[in-house]
Amino acid sequence: MKPPPFEYHDPKTVDETLAILGRYGGEARLLAGGQSLMALLNFRLASPAALVDLNPVPELSYIREEGGQLRFGAMTRQRQIEFSPLVASRLPLMIEATRMVGHLPTRTRGTIGGSIAHADPAAEYPALVTALDGEMVLRSASGTRVVKPADFFKGFFTTAIAPGEMLVEVRIPVTPAHSGWAFEEFSRRHGDFAIVEIVTMLTVDNGRCTRARVAASGVGGAPVRLRPVEEILERDGVGERAIGEASARAAELVDPTSDLHASADYRRHLTRVLTRRALTRAALQVRGNN
């Protein structure tokens, strides 16, 4: 299994990258960490006219805090995130999620932007940005736009990135005070994409759940934010009863499909189980944090 022939470009800046993309008019592909695209090339499931390698573009690799968000350059390695003190202190949930992305040797090269742009329906980062209502910053020759997850993830391996456009930054709000969180996933083997995963962040102030965030992935073409579930928690709190009701609601909201690894019914059922587990863990933590 060897890649088909392609032109190779290694621009040093985003502007240069965009210029090259423009020249190929949709026939070029961006190469980030390569942990998915290289496999597709080796299988010859992708055969772009050109590869534009983002690895030599230093301006795409950073983690910084700004405007209540953590901002990640698209080429920030998953491994950098895993060991980032800033992420550990401002968004520990992301560390938990990162450790479930493949394995350490794949996180060495794998990037946050690559994972999000690839949009595997069961991948961890898309679920995380969806749950926490992050933002994707897209740039093209004509300018910059900021896209919310619900508009960004369009279905199986499909995103809002237009031809000639590229993902340059991912933004995720930092953890609010008085919060608890959990990332629950069920996979058949360690390091696999999940069959179902649930991400949650609960903020509880003075005994009231002021803000609930819950998303599920693995249950359809794109991760889904479960707003009605959040509403239950924001209304009824994070006690056992509310969590039970919220989990049942979660299962109703998703519309999974069947594949080799799990049936649709099982995925729906897991949605309920994992939502309950995630919420219970997050609620327990928030009690500890308060």
């Binding site: 942990q35 496999a39 491994r79 060495t108």
Partner: peptide, 21 residues
């Protein structure tokens, strides 16, 4: 040659990585 088996793992700038990818 698709990143799963790890037989091709090397240290790239000191960190383990798949050389098939």
């Amino acid at each position: 040659e698709h990143g799963i088996c790890g037989a091709c793992t090397i240290l790239f700038n000191g960190e383990a990585a798949r050389s098939c990818l």
